[in-house]
């Protein structure tokens, strides 16, 4: 990929992080950790990979994105707003009565949201059904899903994993946001999923393990899917929970953040620093 394009996407990712903070400011709380760990994944999807049209969210031929880990909704809202699915001012309603942005997404309330998730272990089945529907129609549309790593303990995921493989859904690409933390502590200590890559392979999937914060890697990996002919693909994305906010990074107590005004200020300063570094990179690249 061209450096210019990568830097542009990194700038978008920063703006999405700022949108997430805007949501937190409005609602004074939210599931920040898993939202920030998957910013680069959603940036890559919505600003490079997915065929979508913000002006026509119901476009029949669009690619689909299923947020299985519905509590990461802040990153979805922040991304859809940045992409232009709706006015950014809606971000300021997070937490308000009848807001179009519940604490877990509702497709009937907000354009661009494809599924009502929140209860864990549902998204992979729904995404598999979409992919099967596209296969039946011989459509070239693809289906992408994002799962949390804590979510993998839900048994229903593995029902869907079997089904997607059995029905050869090679138009399905799933990200596991492996930030390695869940409410009670390190995920492998709460309920181990290791060896994760071998587990997916045993279920008949093509597997890649990548740095989930490297936009270029994410895009290049997705472009290689399906990784194996006739198989669904899973990308295990190694990430850092709460990525971008220094005092919250890799800390389990920031799975859900009840923010204090002074913490918001610190987070804004962190984002300002990221912006400064980006400017330097842009200058060095001579753009």
């Amino acid at each position: 990929m061209e450096t210019k394009e990568i830097l542009k996407l990194e700038s978008t990712a920063l703006q999405i992080r700022r949108n997430i903070l805007r949501l937190i400011k409005a609602g004074e709380a939210g599931h920040i950790g898993g939202a920030l760990s998957s910013v680069e994944i959603l940036t890559s999807l919505y600003f490079n990979i997915l065929r979508t049209d913000p002006k026509n969210p119901g476009w029949k031929e669009r690619d689909r994105f299923v947020l299985s880990a519905g509590h990461k909704c802040l990153v979805l809202y922040a991304t859809l707003a940045e992409k232009g699915f709706f006015e950014k001012s809606i971000l300021d309603t997070y937490g308000a009565l009848d807001s179009k942005m519940p604490g877990h997404p509702n497709m009937h309330k907000l354009p661009g949201v494809e599924t009502n998730t929140g209860a864990l272990g549902h998204g992979l089945s729904i995404a598999s059904g979409m992919a099967l529907g596209f296969k039946i129609d011989k459509s070239s549309a693809k289906v992408f899903a994002l799962m949390g790593d804590g979510e993998l303990a839900e048994g229903s995921n593995w029902e869907a994993a079997s089904a997607a493989s059995m029905h050869k859904l090679d138009n399905l690409v799933v990200f596991v946001d492996r930030n390695r933390l869940q409410i009670s502590g390190p995920t492998v200590e709460v309920m181990s999923y290791e060896p994760l890559d071998e587990r997916w392979r045993a279920f008949g999937w093509g597997v890649r393990i990548i740095d989930g914060h490297n936009i270029e890697t994410i895009i290049e990996t997705v472009n290689q899917a399906p990784f194996e002919k006739g198989k669904p693909s899973v990308i295990i994305a190694d990430t850092v929970k709460s990525k971008g906010i220094s005092f919250a990074e890799a800390r389990v107590d920031f799975h859900y953040w009840k923010s204090k005004p002074e913490e918001i200020e610190l987070a804004e300063r962190d984002f300002d620093n990221i912006e400064e570094q980006l400017k330097i990179k842009i200058k060095e690249a001579g753009i």
């Binding site: 689909r64 299923v66 494809e114 599924t115 549902h122 998204g123 992979l124 089945s125 729904i126 995404a127 598999s128 059904g129 979409m130 992919a131 099967l132 529907g133 039946i136 289906v143 229903s156 869907a160 089904a163």
Partner: peptide, 8 residues
Amino acid sequence: GIASGLAT
């Protein structure tokens, strides 16, 4: 869930 996705 698969039925839900198919219906979409």
